[in-house]
């Protein structure tokens, strides 16, 4: 699958990309929500995995924007974050996030989740 991975922290992004690539996924990277939107338009990924707290456009804002764009209505968007509060989650779901995963993530869990999005 083609996956767009958005995280402003390079180490974490690298880790995420490594996990995804090792499972044979095609990965497109972005450093923040704004860049993520641009990449989203070009690459048309099957799934998006985004961090929550990022400069310029955060994960929630990204999700909201993405959902409002043609082609972005249905794409699964997974928010991968250290936050686990009910408020943050509720905000995420209101913005249209598909799933909420808490960091640090278990690679097998994430990959299993992605597997379920496969058609």
């Amino acid at each position: 699958m083609k996956i767009l991975a958005i995280d402003d922290t390079k180490t974490l992004r690298d880790l995420l990309c490594m996990t995804l690539r090792s499972a044979g996924h095609d990965v497109v990277e972005a450093e923040n929500g704004e860049e993520g939107l641009a990449r989203f338009q070009e690459a048309k990924p099957d799934v998006v995995i985004t961090d929550l707290n990022m400069p310029i456009l955060n994960g929630i804002e990204f999700t909201r924007e993405c959902r409002a764009r043609p082609g972005g209505e249905q794409t699964p968007i997974i928010i991968l974050t250290t936050e686990n509060g009910p408020d943050a989650k509720a905000e995420g779901r209101r913005a249209g996030a598909t799933a909420w995963m808490v960091k640090p993530f278990e690679p097998t869990t994430l990959l299993a989740l992605l597997e379920r999005f496969k058609n």
Binding site: E73, Q74, R93, G96, A97, T98, L113, R116
Partner: peptide, 16 residues
């Protein structure tokens, strides 16, 4: 009701 609008295919839930 917003399930679909969040890009969730119910099948994904059921598969889980």
């Amino acid at each position: 009701r917003d399930l679909f609008r969040r890009g969730i295919d119910p099948r994904v839930l059921l598969r889980s």
